[in-house]
Design a protein around this nucleic acid. Structure first.
Length: 880
RNA sequence: GGGGGCAUGGCGGAAGUGGUAGACGCAGCGCACUUAAAAUGCGCAGACGGCGACGUUGUGGGGGUUCAAGUCCCCCUGCCCCCA
C-alpha cells in the first residue's frame, strides 16, 4: 500500500469540515415538502444543553455534543428536517470574577471565550447550524429575557417581597433554594449559605406546582429518576390547617389564633404542645414577661443556624416555652406554646402541633423537655400496650381519640377535616415543599431586571419598546458591597415612564437560570427582532424531540424550563405543555485518578511510573487508583484538543460512543482510544483495498442497495448480504428511541469483520452494496472518515453527493433468511448438543430430529422423554 | 428513615416478550511476517478437572416459581443518586 493512502485524520478532517460548511449541510431546512421526490420532511429538533463559555472544552462537553450530533445526523439520513443549534449560557459569575481579578471587561472576556470554544467545537465535526447561535449576554437575546420577565410581571407571577433568603457570603449574592445543596452550601461557590432578610424578586413557580407535578407522568421519554427527583422536589403533601386558640392564664380565649399545618390530622388527640418558629410574627406579643429573656436569647441563637442544621433529623432539637397556652380544638385540652429550632417560619404556617407519640422529631423534643407523650394510633391488629419507645409514624387505628376511636388513620383524617371545616377551626390543605423562585441577584454580569421604582407610581415596568435595558459598560467592579449597578448613579437615575418624575432603576440582575429557561425556544426563530419567537416557528419545531445533558440539571434547569413553558402557553405565546419530549441524561466522563492515601494528595498520571504498581514519585508509597470525574485539581483530565491532534475527531467520537452506554459514567482509557483508532484504520484499509480492486460506487445517490428480495446465486454472497442487512437492522434499532450507541458501534465492527473476510470473494453488486451500507451506517459516528472513503469509492466526484446526503438503508428481510438454523438440544433444561435443521421445519419435525439425535441417545439412555418442549427455530428440551 | 437505580470474565460492557450467558472491544497469551522490534494478519481465552472428545460449575448471597431464570417473585448484602 502506498504511503499516501494511509489513514491520516489530520489531513482530512478540517477539509471535510470546510466542505460541509460550504455545502450548508448543517443548515436548518424548512420542514414540509422537500426534495425532488416531494417527500414531506418532518421537523426534528435535537438539542444539547448549552454550555457556559468558560473558554475551554472538556470531555463532558465532547460527550454531550457528540451524542446529540449522532442523533441529528441519523435523523437527517432518515429524511427529517433537522434543527441542531448551539448557543452560550453566557451570563454568570466567572466572567465577573475574571473582570475583578484581571481588570478585563466581562463582555469582551466572554466573547473571547465563546470564539475559542466555538472553534474547539468545530474541530469535532459537529453538524450544528451556527446561523442560529445565541448568547444570553448579548442584548439581542437578553432584550427578550426582559420582555418575558415583563410577561411574568403582567401575569402576576413576578413579585417583590421581603423574605428570609439564602445569602452566599463568597459570591455576595442571594441564591434560590434549588441552588443550595444538601449541606447548605452554594451550588457555585461552595460557601455555607447564611440567612438574611431582604427585599427580593420572586417568580411564583408555586402557582404551577400542581401542573408541574401532575404532568410528570406524561414525560414518558424522560428517565424515571429525573421524574422522581422533580416530584420529590415539588413535594406535595395533603393535610390540614388547624386553628388553636390562645388562652390567658385563666384559660379564657384571648382572641388570638395559632394556625398549624399538619399532614396527620388523625393524631390531633395526641397533641401535647404547639411549637412556633422562632421567627413567627406572634412570638413577640405572646411571650410572657418571665420568659422574655430566654426567648430572646434563643431567637438569637437560632438565627445563626442554617435551615439544614435546624431540621436535620439527627441534630438535637432545642426550644423554650414562651409562657402561653393554646386550646386543642378537638378536645379542649390546654397545651403549652413553645418555640423551637426545628420549625421553619416559611414552611407551612410556621407552626406545628407537637405529637410526640407519632412524629420522630416531636418525640425527641418531648423526651428532652419531659413533655407528655400520648399515644393515639396503634398498628392495626396490635393491642394498645404492645408498643412503647420511638414514635410510631405509620398509619394505624385511632385510640384515646374520643368519637374517632377505632377508625383507620385515613378515615379519621377525612372526618377530622370535615369536623374542622364544620366547626370553623380548620380546613383541608395541600402543602408543597417547592418555594417560589428567588430570581434577583446583586451582581453585575446578568440580565438587568427591567423595572423602575417610582415614589409616586411604585414598581413600574420598563415599556416593551424601551427594551433592552442595557447593561452599562466600563464599570469598576469590586466584588463587594451590594450590586455594582447600584453605584452607577447615571444609570440608576431615570424618569418614571409613568409620571415622568425622577425615579430609580432596579439594580438587581436576574438569576442566569432565567436566561437558560427559554433559549431552546429562541433557536426556533433566532433572528426575530419583533418578538422572542413567533408562535408559528415555536410550534413548528417544539417540543424538542431529543434533549441531551447532564443529570445535574435534573431539578434546576429542567424544572424552571417546564415552568416557563407552561406560563408562556397560558399567555398564548406557544401551544404545547412540555418543552422536552425525550431526555437523555448522559453520564460523566471520568479520568484515572491516583491519590496518596496518607497525605491525601492527588498525583498526576504522568508522574506515575508504573500504572500496574502506582507509587508516589516522591515518597514511594502505594497509591489508591480509581476513576473520578475529570477535574484540574485531581490532575485526571484529558484535553480533547490533544486527543484530536493525535487521533482525530472521528476516533474521539467513536471511542466516547463505544466505551459505555450514554447514560452511564465513562472511564477514559488511552488503550481503548488506541483500539478505536485501529478500528478506523482497518476500515480505511478495507475500503481502500476495495477501491484498488476497482470496486467503485456510482455517484447516483440512494441507488446502492440491491433490489429488495434479491437473492445472490452464491452462498458466500448470501452470507455477506446477511451480515450487511443484519447490521442495518441492529444499528437502526440501537438508534431508535432509547439510544445504544455502544452496541451500534460494535455492530459496525462486526460488519467490518465480516467484510474483511468475505468482500474479496463477493460478486461486484453485493460487494458494492456492502461498502455503501457500511459507509452510510458509519457516517453519523465518524463523519469525516465516512465522507472521505465515500469519495474515494467514487461516489462523490463533484462534491455534492456527500455520504451525509444519502438515505438511511432499509433492511431487506429476504437477506436475513436462512435455509438452516442451529437447533439447541436440551435435556432437562441443560444444553447437551446442537443440530443443523431446516429453518422452516415444524415443531413435530424438530421433536423427531431431537429424539433421534445422538445427543438424545447419549443422555436419555434409551428411556423415552416424559415431556418435550419445542421452541421452533430455537431449541428442543427433552425432559426424562 | 422514605424513594429511585445498580451488582455479569482481569477490565469496559453484550444478552426482543424467560429459551445456547459472556457479543464487540481493551488488556493478556500463542503463531505467522521481520535480523529484531513496532505495525499487521491468523488463532486461543469465565473458572475448575482432563492429553483429548468432554464433564462439572458459573451472572453479589440465600430461597422460590418454571421443562427452562442474568431476566420473574421473596429475603439479605454492598455501592450510587435524590429527598428528609
Amino acid at each position: 500500500m502506498t504511503d499516501s493512502s494511509r489513514y491520516r485524520p489530520q489531513e482530512i478532517e478540517e477539509r471535510w469540515q470546510q466542505h460541509w460548511q460550504s455545502q450548508g449541510l448543517a443548515l436548518t431546512p424548512e420542514p414540509g415538502p422537500s426534495g425532488a421526490d416531494g417527500e414531506a420532511a418532518e421537523p426534528y429538533y435535537a438539542l444539547s444543553m448549552f454550555p457556559y463559555p468558560s473558554g475551554s472544552l472538556h470531555m463532558g462537553h465532547v460527550r454531550n455534543y457528540v451524542i446529540t450530533d449522532v442523533i441529528a445526523r441519523v435523523q437527517r439520513l432518515r429524511g427529517r428536517a433537522v434543527l441542531h443549534p448551539m448557543g452560550w449560557d453566557a451570563f454568570g459569575l466567572p466572567a465577573e470574577n475574571a473582570a475583578i481579578e484581571r481588570g478585563v471587561d466581562p463582555g469582551a472576556w466572554t466573547d473571547q471565550n465563546i470564539a475559542q470554544m466555538r472553534q474547539q467545537l468545530q474541530r469535532l465535526g459537529l453538524s450544528i447550524d451556527w446561523d442560529r447561535e445565541v448568547a444570553t449576554c448579548h442584548a439581542d437575546y437578553y432584550r427578550w429575557t426582559q420582555w418575558l420577565f415583563l410577561q411574568f410581571l403582567d401575569a402576576g407571577l413576578a413579585y417583590r417581597s421581603e423574605a428570609t433568603v439564602n445569602w452566599d457570603p463568597i459570591d455576595q449574592t442571594v441564591l434560590a433554594n434549588e441552588q443550595v445543596d444538601g449541606e447548605g452550601r452554594s451550588w457555585r461557590s461552595g460557601a455555607l449559605v447564611e440567612k438574611r432578610k431582604l427585599r427580593q424578586w420572586f417568580l411564583k413557580i408555586t402557582a404551577y406546582a400542581d401542573q408541574l407535578l401532575d404532568d410528570l407522568p406524561k414525560l414518558e421519554g424522560w428517565p424515571e429518576r429525573v421524574r422522581t427527583m422533580q416530584a420529590n422536589w415539588i413535594g406535595r403533601s395533603r393535610g390540614a390547617e388547624l386553628q388553636f386558640e390562645v388562652v390567658d392564664a385563666d384559660g379564657a380565649a384571648t382572641g388570638q389564633q395559632i394556625q398549624v399545618f399538619t399532614t396527620r390530622p388523625d393524631t390531633l388527640y395526641g397533641v401535647s404542645y404547639v411549637v412556633l418558629a422562632p421567627e413567627h410574627p406572634l412570638v413577640a406579643s405572646l411571650t410572657s414577661a418571665e420568659q422574655q429573656l430566654p426567648v430572646t436569647a434563643f431567637i438569637d441563637l437560632v438565627g445563626r443556624q442554617s435551615d439544614q442544621d435546624r431540621t436535620a433529623e439527627d441534630s438535637p432539637k432545642r426550644g423554650v416555652p414562651i409562657g402561653a397556652r393554646v386550646r386543642n380544638p378537638a378536645n379542649g385540652e390546654l397545651v403549652p406554646l413553645w418555640i423551637a429550632d426545628y420549625v421553619l417560619a416559611d414552611y407551612g404556617t410556621g407552626a406545628v402541633m407537637g405529637v410526640p407519640a407519632h412524629d420522630q422529631r416531636d418525640f425527641v423534643f418531648a423526651r428532652q423537655y419531659e413533655l407528655p407523650v400520648q399515644q393515639v394510633i396503634i398498628p392495626e391488629g396490635a393491642d394498645e400496650h404492645a408498643y412503647e419507645g420511638g414514635a410510631w409514624t405509620a398509619a394505624g387505628v385511632l385510640i384515646h381519640s374520643g368519637p374517632y376511636n377505632g377508625l383507620s388513620s385515613s378515615e379519621a383524617q377525612q372526618r377530622i377535616i370535615a369536623a374542622a371545616e364544620a366547626g370553623g377551626w380548620g380546613q383541608g390543605r395541600v402543602q408543597y415543599r417547592l418555594r417560589d423562585w428567588l430570581i434577583s441577584r446583586q451582581r453585575y454580569w446578568g440580565c438587568p431586571i427591567p423595572v423602575i421604582h417610582c415614589d409616586t407610581c411604585g414598581v413600574v415596568p420598563v415599556p416593551a419598546e424601551q427594551l433592552p435595558v442595557e447593561l452599562p459598560q466600563g464599570l469598576e467592579l469590586a466584588g463587594k458591597g451590594g450590586s455594582p449597578l447600584a453605584r452607577l448613579e447615571s444609570w440608576v437615575a431615570v424618569a418614571c415612564p409613568c409620571c415622568g418624575k425622577p425615579a430609580r432603576r432596579e439594580t438587581d440582575t436576574m438569576d442566569t437560570f432565567m436566561c437558560s429557561s427559554w433559549y431552546y425556544l429562541r433557536y426556533s426563530d433566532p433572528h426575530n427582532s419583533a418578538l422572542p419567537f413567533s408562535r408559528a416557528a415555536v410550534d413548528r419545531w417544539l417540543p424538542v424531540d431529543q434533549y441531551v445533558g447532564g443529570i445535574e440539571h435534573a431539578i434546576l434547569h429542567l424544572l424552571y424550563s417546564r415552568f416557563f413553558t407552561k406560563v408562556l402557553r397560558d399567555r398564548g405565546l406557544l401551544g404545547f405543555d412540555e418543552p422536552f419530549s425525550q431526555l437523555l441524561t448522559q453520564g460523566m466522563v471520568q479520568g484515572i485518578t491516583y491519590k496518596n492515601p496518607h497525605s491525601g494528595k492527588y498525583i498526576a498520571p504522568a508522574d506515575v511510573a508504573d500504572p500496574s504498581d502506582p507509587r508516589d514519585p516522591i515518597t514511594g508509597e502505594v497509591l489508591d487508583t480509581f476513576y473520578e470525574k475529570m477535574s484540574k485539581s485531581k490532575y485526571n483530565g484529558v484535553d480533547p484538543a490533544v486527543v484530536i491532534d493525535r487521533y482525530g475527531a472521528d476516533t474521539a467520537r467513536m471511542f466516547i460512543l463505544f466505551k459505555a452506554p450514554p447514560e452511564k459514567d465513562l472511564e477514559w482509557d488511552d488503550a481503548d482510544v488506541e483500539g478505536q483508532y485501529r478500528f478506523l484504520q482497518r476500515l480505511w484499509r478495507l475500503v481502500e483495498a476495495a477501491a484498488d480492486r476497482g470496486l467503485l460506487l456510482s455517484p447516483r445517490s440512494g441507488g446502492f442497495l440491491l433490489a429488495p428480495g434479491s437473492v445472490p446465486a452464491s452462498a458466500s454472497d448470501q452470507e455477506l448480504r446477511r451480515a450487511v442487512h443484519t447490521a442495518i437492522a441492529a444499528i437502526s434499532e440501537d438508534l431508535d428511541g432509547d439510544y445504544q450507541f455502544n452496541t451500534a458501534v460494535s455492530e459496525l465492527m462486526k460488519l467490518s469483520n465480516a467484510m474483511a473476510s468475505q468482500l474479496e470473494a463477493a460478486s461486484e453488486p453485493v460487494a458494492l452494496e456492502a461498502l455503501a451500507v457500511l459507509l452510510v451506517l458509519l457516517a453519523p459516528f465518524a463523519p469525516h472518515l465516512a465522507d472521505e472513503l465515500w469519495q474515494r469509492l467514487g461516489a462523490n466526484p463533484d462534491g455534492d453527493t456527500s455520504v451525509h446526503r444519502q438515505r438511511w438503508p432499509q433492511v431487506d428481510a429476504t437477506a436475513l433468511r436462512r435455509d438452516t438454523v442451529t437447533l439447541v438440544i436440551q435435556v432437562k433444561g441443560k444444553v447437551r448438543g446442537q443440530l443443523e435443521v431446516p429453518a422452516d421445519a415444524d415443531a413435530a419435525t424438530l421433536e423427531k430430529l431431537a429424539r433421534d439425535s445422538d445427543v438424545a441417545a447419549k443422555w436419555l439412555e434409551g428411556q423415552p422423554p416424559r415431556r418435550v418442549i419445542v421452541v421452533p427455530g430455537k431449541l428442543v428440551n427433552l425432559v426424562p
